[in-house]
C-alpha cells in the first residue's frame, strides 16, 4: 500500500484558500484512509465542516473508492460536467496520495489542486491496522526493512504530518 504523508497543517491549508473560491474535497477511501485516516469519508466530512465553519465555500465532497484509478477520476469528472457542476468548482483539496493528484492534474487541468501530500514509499497494513512504511523513497533518507517504520514516526522524522486535517495542530 502507498504510505502517504500530509505536508501541511489545517492553518496552512486555510492560507492557500480564498473565501471566494468554490472548493471540492476529494477523498480516497483506500490507501489514504489507511494512512492514519488522512483520506476516507470521516476525514472528508470533518474537513468540510471545519472549513465551512471558518467561512469557506465547500461546494462538493467526493469520496472515491480509489483515486489512483484514472478511469474513476474521469468518470467523476464526466458526472460533474453532466450535472452542470464542473464549472462550479475552482479548487480541489485532495485527501489522496501524490500519484492520484498527478492523475487529477491531467484530467482536471483547469482546476487548482492543492499540493497537500507526499508519498513516502510503499508499506503494509499491520495486524493492528497501522500503516508501516517498509520501502521508503530515496528522498526520505529512511531505510528499507521488513520491520519498517510506523507512519507517525516517519512523518516526525520528515517534518510532515499524518491523519486528517485538525484544528489544533
Amino acid at each position: 500500500m502507498i504510505a502517504s504523508l500530509r505536508t501541511m497543517t489545517y492553518e496552512e491549508l486555510k492560507n492557500t484558500l480564498g473565501k471566494d473560491e468554490r472548493i471540492a474535497i476529494w477523498s480516497c477511501d483506500t490507501c489514504a484512509k489507511s494512512c492514519d485516516g488522512f483520506g476516507g469519508e470521516e476525514s472528508m466530512k470533518s474537513l468540510a465542516s471545519q472549513l465551512r465553519s471558518d467561512g469557506f465555500n465547500v461546494q462538493k465532497e467526493e469520496l472515491l473508492v480509489a483515486s489512483c484509478y484514472f478511469d474513476g477520476i474521469r468518470n467523476r469528472k464526466e458526472k460533474w460536467v453532466s450535472d452542470g457542476e464542473y464549472d462550479e468548482i475552482d479548487v480541489i483539496i485532495p485527501l489522496a496520495c501524490q500519484e492520484a493528484r498527478v492523475a487529477m492534474e491531467k484530467l482536471l487541468p483547469d482546476k487548482r489542486i492543492i499540493d497537500d501530500s507526499r508519498t513516502a514509499g510503499l508499506g503494509m497494513l499491520d495486524k493492528n491496522g497501522v500503516c508501516i512504511l517498509t520501502d521508503p523513497f530515496e528522498w526520505t533518507g529512511l531505510d528499507a526493512s521488513d520491520e519498517g517504520i510506523d507512519l507517525k514516526s516517519a512523518a516526525k522524522k520528515l517534518g510532515m504530518f499524518t491523519g486528517p486535517f485538525q484544528y489544533d495542530e
Binding site: 484509478y69 484514472f70 500519484e99 492520484a100 498527478v102 508519498t119
Partner: peptide, 14 residues
Amino acid sequence: IGYYDSSKRGSVLV
C-alpha cells in the same frame, strides 16, 4: 508507484 489507466490497459509509473 503510479496510477491505473484501463484505456492503456496498465499502470503508469509516476
